[in-house]
Design a protein around this nucleic acid. Structure first.
Lengths: 307, 307
DNA sequence: CCTTTCACG
DNA sequence: CGTGCAAGG
């Protein structure tokens, strides 16, 4: 029964955990050392201090994440809005400790229909949103529990868990359809108010955004089509806040597969983003990658805005 | 999603983990304190010292049992034959540490066909058996991986994992058919050589053999039909070695459900037996219940014979 | 409560 | 490697 056999270093650098043609190789560390998240820029270049802190985390199972102390970090970070992805947890099963998270009384949960334990997102907020919507208005994708949108007075916060293209890219086509539909959804929001999109977008945009770009050219999360989807997002007037502020930062990843001890060697991918409407750039103070925080195969990220 | 909700003390005293009508009640300890396994009787009443030590253990998953240190105890006990039940493990997946168990080089594994992770038995021996047979020669049951028989010069050792009647007794009928077919199988063996039957027979024979007999009159493992099956075994010339030697021993259990912390309160069942052909009684030195040994929801038992 | 498998990542 | 599920006990 060598199904669970240890091939060890086979797809250690594979991002969406795909079927990349990663050749077997030794457990070497990433040439780029882990990004060191600098002390926060507390204000905009014009000197306006941040007033909104939004964190995002793919928790890979809300209940397991809670057992591993994830809620602890939330209390230390004390965000005004918290976006969670891959909760794998129906709203009714959200543990009381999460419901009672100090400072985040307004909670919204969206999970996959008829698929317990799959996907799911949550949005927790200090102040009550003006409105909250579930999904992107596309029946093909909205059964999955992937998008939550909270309207606040000055902006929309969108929490998203973009579908994985799957091993062997078996679900690349639906993924690309999601990308297109999601972009239209974001454009419509952006026409009304500026948008802050946070979440696991399941793509590394450029070579600098993953440890082994060459080996993963055909891996889910780094196919040309997925990367193009992200480029189209940028072309539509949205900005990758982290890359905008730190254009040359290397080794800045937010995901490391559990396989083969990838995280210890920083064999990672940047899949989690805080993306802002261009006209929100003047309000952007900082975009943080909390890559030392344990609790999931993703780390949390945090955006600071003066809105 | 209160599927995993804590009903706590609902079927804590249910044996085969059935659907007994056990009323909800406080987590009280069993009135009978845990049986204290006395120092071994090293010889028969006639003074012949034991020459054969046979242990039996329902391991509830061979690999989990190994992780919990089960093999450690085997080395301390150093049996000549070891019978394992509920290995939940195909022969090819038996870990190397088990294959290398000192003193038990002759190993035989029988697992369920087309049902990975279900049932399964193993028989390990110091000396090579003259013959080993798989199953009982009944196609209805032999796909399950429940019986291994090893022929030695002076006796047959049968390792058995009798089918559970299932929650709500949904599989009581096949269980009773197994009992009947198995008894015929044992009679045929017994006609050739004396038999030592070891294993999880999935029945508590009498009130004294479980903590809460009244509450479990309709539970799998204590229905009148299953108890009658055991009585028929005895009527056919077989002897329950433990009860023969310790007719009044109370609180002597070999199984405690994981639910509700039953083991800590000794809310248990005696489901594991060393049964001998009557003419082997003169060779019986002792029948041990190792009820302090961890590693499974069952504890191991050991028979000592002068053969 | 705890094992196994499975799909998914 | 690790999540949550299902079936089994």
């Amino acid at each position: 029964m060598p199904k669970r056999g240890k091939k060890k270093e086979e797809e250690e650098e594979s991002g969406g955990d795909g079927t990349g043609p990663s050749p077997a190789k030794a457990a070497r560390a990433c040439p780029a050392p882990p990004y060191e998240d600098p002390p926060p820029r507390e204000a905009t270049p014009e000197g306006r201090r941040w007033t909104l802190k939004v964190s995002s985390w793919n928790v890979d199972g809300l209940r397991a994440w809670l057992r591993k102390g994830g809620a602890q970090w939330v209390q230390e970070e004390a965000p005004d809005v918290l976006c969670l992805q891959e909760t794998k947890c129906a709203a009714a099963a959200v543990p009381a400790e999460v419901r009672a998270l100090p400072g985040l009384p307004h909670q919204f949960w969206c999970s996959a229909k008829d698929r317990p334990g799959y996907s799911g997102v949550g949005l927790l907020a200090r102040s009550e949103p003006l409105d909250v919507t579930y999904g992107i208005g596309d029946p093909e994708h909205d059964a999955d529990g992937r998008v939550l949108t909270a309207e606040f007075p000055s902006l929309f916060v969108v929490c998203a868990y973009v579908p994985n293209a799957g091993r062997g890219l078996v679900r690349l086509e639906p993924r690309l359809r999601f990308d297109a539909a999601f972009l239209q959804f974001l454009r419509r929001l952006d026409a009304r108010k500026p948008v802050l999109l946070c979440g696991d977008l399941n793509v590394a945009h450029a070579d600098i955004d993953l440890c082994h770009p060459r080996a993963n050219r055909a891996s889910p999360g780094f196919t040309p089509q997925e990367r193009d989807g992200f480029s189209r997002l940028l072309a539509a007037g949205f900005v990758d806040s982290f890359r905008h502020l730190y254009p040359a930062a290397r080794g800045a990843f937010t995901f490391w597969t559990y396989l083969g001890g990838a995280r210890a060697r920083n064999v990672g991918w940047r899949l989690d983003y805080a993306v802002v409407s261009q006209r929100l750039l003047g309000a952007l103070c900082d975009s943080k990658i909390r890559n030392t925080v344990p609790g999931s195969d993703h780390c949390p990220i945090t955006a600071l805005l003066a809105v």
